[in-house]
Computed example of a mutant assay.
Amino acid sequence: MAPSAAWYLLLLALVAVERLAELVTARRHAAWSLARGGREYGRGHYPTMVALHTALLVGCAVEATYRPFLPAPGWTALALVLAAQGLRWWCVVSLGPRWNTRVIVVPDLPLVVAGPYRWLRHPNYVAVVVEGVALPLVHSAWVTALVFTAANAWLLRVRIRCEDAALDSLSGPRPSVPAGVAP
């Protein structure tokens, strides 16, 4: 295995650890939300989301074994991966205990319009899209980037509709301000 592939596998392992940290945070936040009367929506698509994001990491690892590291696109893609992680955790911090990997809406809480939610309705999904393209391209895994991006486009369509419907069910259609339900 080329040294660049070994470093890339380390990066993928770090992303996997970050995903586990997200799940721990989400579990704690879910308990907080449910204790306050939160209602979960979209349970049906959640296993697909977990499988797709797991497949992203596996696809990257497999494809890296036979693709070269190309410095110019690789370093650029790594910078995008790091920026996506920053945006993701900015979303987590901005939503506080309302952030979750599941769609759980707590009645009577106002929409969050702080942090990146000041400008975007679903900023975490910007991070997901950027990472889904960039993480594979750090090590030229373009097939994984294409397959994940196509599958993720379908999943995000389902997910965003679910979140918007969940928020609409609480208070009617929302004004055109950012949503406070996290992915």
Rank of each mutant, 00 (worst) to 15 (best):
A166W: 12
L80M: 15
A2S: 13
V158C: 07
A134G: 02
A166H: 04
V112I: 11
P107L: 07
V147L: 13
H122G: 08
P116G: 03
W99V: 10
H45F: 06
C60V: 01
V103W: 05
R28N: 15
L23I: 06
I104K: 01
V128A: 11
T65S: 07
S4Y: 11
L87Q: 03
G42I: 07
G44T: 01
A2N: 10
A13W: 04
F148K: 12
P97R: 03
L155T: 15
L170H: 01
V130E: 01
P173E: 02
G38K: 09
S33C: 05
R157H: 15
L10D: 05
G44E: 00
F69M: 10
P71Q: 08
A145N: 07
A151W: 11
A153W: 14
C91S: 08
T25F: 05
L34T: 02
G37C: 00
P107Y: 03
R102N: 03
W90E: 03
F148I: 14
F148R: 14
Y66R: 09
R19Q: 03
H139Y: 12
L135Y: 12
A55W: 02
L170P: 01
D168M: 11
I160P: 12
R39C: 00
A153H: 14
I160L: 13
D164P: 10
G96H: 02
V133P: 07
A51V: 08
S171G: 07
A13V: 12
Y46M: 08
H139R: 10
L87D: 04
D164R: 08
L137G: 11
L109W: 07
A61I: 12
A151I: 10
L135S: 10
A30V: 08
P173S: 02
A79C: 14
W32N: 07
V130N: 04
H29L: 11
L12H: 03
N152F: 11
A114K: 12
A26D: 05
H45S: 10
A84G: 15
G44N: 00
T76K: 12
V130D: 03
A127S: 15
H29Q: 13
W89S: 04
V128D: 02
G37A: 00
V158K: 09
